[in-house]
Amino acid sequence: MDATIEVRGLSKRYGPTTAVDGLTFTVAPGRVTGFVGPNGAGKSTTMRMIMGLDRPDAGTALVGGRSYRSLRTPLCRLGALLDASAVHPARRARDHLRWLAHANGLPVRRVDEVIELAGLTGAAGRRAGGFSLGMRQRLGIAAALLGDPPVLMFDEPVNGLDPDGIAWMRGLLRSLAGEGRAVLVSSHLMSELEGGADHLVMIGRGRLIADIGVGELLDAASGGRVELRTARRQEAMTVLAHAGATVTAHGTDAVTVAGLDSERIIALLTGAGVTFSGVAAYRASLEEAYMELTRDAVEFQAVTGRVAP
């Protein structure tokens, strides 16, 4: 119960623009939930409403069953990194964490613990203005972990990070979920979540497009298709099409086959004397599955040119 975010019918308008439109989803403990959508889909607005920074026009967002604004020690309930650049450039990193700790009555030793956890030990005495984006991200992570919260929320955490930083972030998110915490991570790039998220909440134009497990999504996008590799592609495609399959050529020697299972394909090709080098279940990429689901949302934006903030 503590480690959840429940969003129910959440809506937010900015003037004539509807940023979030009746959004409902739950972030469950023990897994990384990817929060995906094109830029302007309403991800940041939703996160700001969860934290009580912006007031929803309708609906509720609960953290561990309570509204954020009613929490007495919110840093112990939800840790968030919304904007890594939002630190005072003239303040030292340790002092930034120290005032946050004071605000929730946390012991100062906790500041040193999170500095070490985030890998900032050598830089804690420096002013945040001199930090690289990667170091600011680490400072933001340290701040999010300060209250050892059961729920964590990161807005585009790998934006601007180098490959080492991305790998570090991915490992961190995994280990936080592994400890039983609920972790919500937004991204506009599905590829960033490949191998990182267990569950996906996809939105477009402020509306829910899909709330689905990553495995389930990939199964659906793969659609029971089979990938065939053969040097004699034309002959293979003719044989399989005659047997009623839908075939699509891609790459130099690959064919994606829908409508026939592997065994049947092997039998047909062997019977016709067409050689092949491999037959395997087709695995769609997360990106591919995502593109299919969000196509409508993206098209709408391209046509009207109206993108929610």
């Binding site: 503590d2 007495r72 020690t73 112990c76 005072h88 003239a90 303040r91 030292r92 002092d95 930034h96 120290r98 005032w99 946050l100 004071h102 605000a103 929730n104 009555g105 946390l106 012991p107 906790r110 209250g147 050892d148 919260p149 059961p150 400890e179 039983g180 915490r181």
Partner: peptide, 28 residues
């Protein structure tokens, strides 16, 4: 998970906020 840190929380809301603001002010 949250027990150790939360159990060491001290002070009332207003006092904590004043202490945080004071730290904020004096560290600039």
């Amino acid at each position: 998970m949250t027990g150790s840190v939360m159990s060491s929380v001290r002070g009332g809301g207003a006092g904590r906020a004043v202490r945080a603001e004071w730290t904020k002010l004096r560290t600039l």
